[in-house]
Nucleic acid binder design. Structure first.
Length: 621
RNA sequence: GGGGCUGUAGCUCAGUUGGUUAGAGUGCCGGUCUGUCACACCGGAGGUCGCGGGUUCGAGUCCCGUCAGCCCCGCCA
């Protein structure tokens, strides 16, 4: 038995591919190399491409392992096989028996892993013919991909492409590695329900009507959060699940309504236990994906991240940092700057050496990004040979320029006011400036932990849990919980890779009294608390161990490791931005008797204008 | 819910200031071809210009509406 190099598209490390031989074939097509010449094989696969020279005919045979050229000719192919080979079309499914031969020296193809050999077909069997594919599987150099709508509509064809096969193979290997890794650490995989109780806060739930209980609904889980905490109280001290989660919110390129989390929780842990486990997992995953991850990862407190980068998930591939110029510029004779400082705000900004080369139009593009992030405006100035230019420059005396440590050619981008406004604006400014100036990266793979998030945030006078209501208050801050809750940090941590949030976790409250207190701060009265969280409080009161965990976004991990443009490229059957499945056509209307059984009634959507109600393919009259 | 981009042959795209019969490449069909690998060459078929309405002598092109896909804001504890 010869051990061959696997040629699957994502085989980037020594991960052995088992033989794909079956009763119908002796091998997969992509495994063959020069040393296999002389072997008698039977292979199956799809017709990828055909080159018909009349007397000679070549077919690129494809399966998930790769491509292999099959040659047909009168000297080695049975007459019947030769004749039907001329009629083969793209995506026909065939089976070929013949001998692997070294290709003539001048006819080898160095671009193909199997390019030194070809299968000389003796017999050909058409296992299934294919209609002309609606979208091509083959993609020539310079060919654009078909429209995304068509790729989703004909997903069975799009998924035949090597790129998507490679993506899903990597995904498989990462999931497998995850299970092995946590198994090795003593974690147990426990499944939790998909038909669950509606969660009172957070994202919109997908609801499932109950047939046996009129008017009542299950919810699909947004995450197994409460279940895993209950598993901790039950004594399963290390839990893991590759968990499917659902949130009925509008989509983005990095957001699908249905997604997969690596969900874990452990008892009797400190935050560093979780962080180190996850760092170890990321190191293993990164190695599989061929990217760099060297624990321990850099750590920033939430406050520091907001201060230096304006974001709770800064992209540290670039070093550019926000500076505090409150002292330096607070003396400038500008109403905006003075007002900001007098109002208790700060003056912060970015210094961009060489940034003065940007056109006014480009600087305005940066300002537009800041405004889109909620800033009323952005002040800017260029340091030039004869002083300065830009809206900010008129307020600047020479002493200000000195305080800014300005050099000729610098661009200064400044925002003034409360941090909660200027931080997001400066983060957007930072990203736009990096893009427009094409600043060089200082590293290709930036791993980061962001720690100590505030427990609460206030919006329109209401208190909200920053993460979720179960995060353990930081012990140093716990005495302020009642009087100054907004200043209380949680023992919480986010994993950030290249500016993308890959995971989020915390230690949890295990004292039912503290849990009740936090829920009260969030505005729930005791009745609501018992109704909505009674089962959790009951579990905590039964002797819950200190515990904590994290949830990592599997889809995003695969997407970011592949630098794929969209989550749709790492999910086999994704939804569109309108949450539709174009291939199978979900969601779809149901018959009214089915609705009746579920105690539901369809309400006509009130029509706009003087249109009557929308047409509905209901029961035929 | 809001903003933006896109929609023309199976696929990818062009289509000028509103003006004769809407084009190209590829795929498809037919033919020639024994070392191709984006095979080559010859010939052919293929169109509800997303859909509906309007302006106009005349609309792929202008206007209004609508549908779909994508990107963004809101939303996503």
């Amino acid at each position: 038995m010869s051990s061959r190099t696997p040629t699957s598209p994502a085989a980037s490390s020594a991960h052995p591919t088992p033989s794909l031989a079956t009763r119908l074939r002796t091998d997969a097509v992509g495994v063959f190399r020069g040393e296999d010449a002389g072997r008698e094989v039977t292979l199956t696969g799809w017709v990828h491409r055909r080159r018909d020279l009349g007397g000679l005919l070549f077919v690129d045979l494809r399966d998930r392992s790769g491509l292999l050229q099959v040659s047909f000719g009168p000297d080695w192919t049975e007459a019947g096989g030769l004749e039907s080979a001329h009629g083969l079309g793209a995506e026909d499914v065939i089976r070929i028996t013949g001998e692997l031969r070294l290709r003539p020296e001048e006819a080898r193809n160095p671009e193909l892993p199997t390019g030194d050999v070809e299968l000389q077909a003796r017999t050909l069997t058409l296992l299934n013919s294919a209609e002309t594919p609606a979208i091509p599987v083959y993609r020539g150099p310079g060919d654009e991909l078909p429209a995304e709508e068509l790729r989703l509509r004909y997903r069975h064809l799009d998924l035949r492409r090597a790129e998507l096969q490679r993506n899903l193979l990597l995904r498989h290997r990462l999931i497998l590695a995850t299970r092995n890794y946590f198994h090795g650490l003593g974690f147990l995989e426990v499944e939790t329900p998909m038909l669950t109780k509606r969660t009172p806060e957070g994202a919109r739930d997908y609801l499932v009507p109950s047939r046996v209980h009129p008017g009542e609904f299950y919810a699909l889980p947004q995450s197994p959060q409460i279940y895993k905490q209950i598993l901790m109280t039950a004594g399963f001290d290390r839990y893991i699940q590759i968990a499917r989660c659902f949130r009925d919110e509008d989509l983005r390129a990095d957001r699908q309504p249905e997604f997969t989390q690596i969900d874990l929780e452990a008892s009797f842990v400190g935050p560093d236990d979780i962080l180190e486990w996850v760092e170890g997992l990321m190191a293993e995953m990164a190695e599989i994906a061929g990217i760099e991850a060297a624990p321990p990862f850099h750590r920033l407190s939430w406050a520091e991240a907001m201060d230096r980068y304006g974001s709770d998930r800064p992209d540290l591939r670039w070093e550019l940092e926000i500076r505090d110029w409150t002292r330096v510029l607070g003396t400038a004779d500008s109403a905006i700057l003075r007002g900001a400082v007098e109002g208790g705000g700060r003056i912060r900004g970015l210094r961009l050496p060489g940034g003065a080369s940007l056109s006014r139009r480009q600087v305005e593009e940066i300002e537009a990004a800041a405004k889109a992030a909620g800033a009323p405006g952005l002040l800017w100035a260029k340091r030039t040979a004869d002083g300065g230019s830009g809206p900010l420059a008129r307020w600047l005396e020479e002493s200000h320029w000195t305080g800014l440590e300005a050099a000729e050619g610098d661009l200064f981008l400044v925002a003034a006011g409360a941090d909660r406004i200027t931080s997001p604006a400066l983060s957007a400014t930072r990203e736009a400036a990096i893009r427009l100036l094409e600043l060089p990266k200082v590293r290709e793979h930036a791993w980061l932990w962001v720690l100590d998030f505030p427990l609460f945030e206030e919006e329109d006078g209401e208190m909200w849990a920053n993460h979720h209501p179960f995060v353990l208050p930081h012990p140093d801050d716990a005495d302020r919980l009642q009087d100054d809750p907004l200043s209380v940090r949680g023992i919480a941590y986010d994993l950030v890779y290249n500016g993308s949030e890959l995971g989020s976790g915390s230690l949890r409250i295990h004292d039912p009294a503290v849990q009740r207190q936090v829920l009260r701060i969030l505005g729930l009265d005791d009745g609501e608390i018992d109704r909505k969280f009674g089962f959790l409080l009951e579990a905590l009161a039964s002797g819950a161990p200190p515990h904590g965990g994290i949830a990592l976004g599997m889809d995003r991990i695969v997407k970011d490791f592949l630098a794929a443009p969209s989550l749709r490229d790492v999910i086999a059957f994704p939804k569109t931005t309108a949450a539709r499945a174009l291939f199978e056509g979900a969601p779809s209307p149901v018959e009214s008797d089915e609705l009746m059984e579920l105690h539901l009634e369809r309400r006509e959507k009130s029509a706009k204008g003087n249109n009557t109600s929308s047409p509905e393919p209901e029961s035929p009259a």
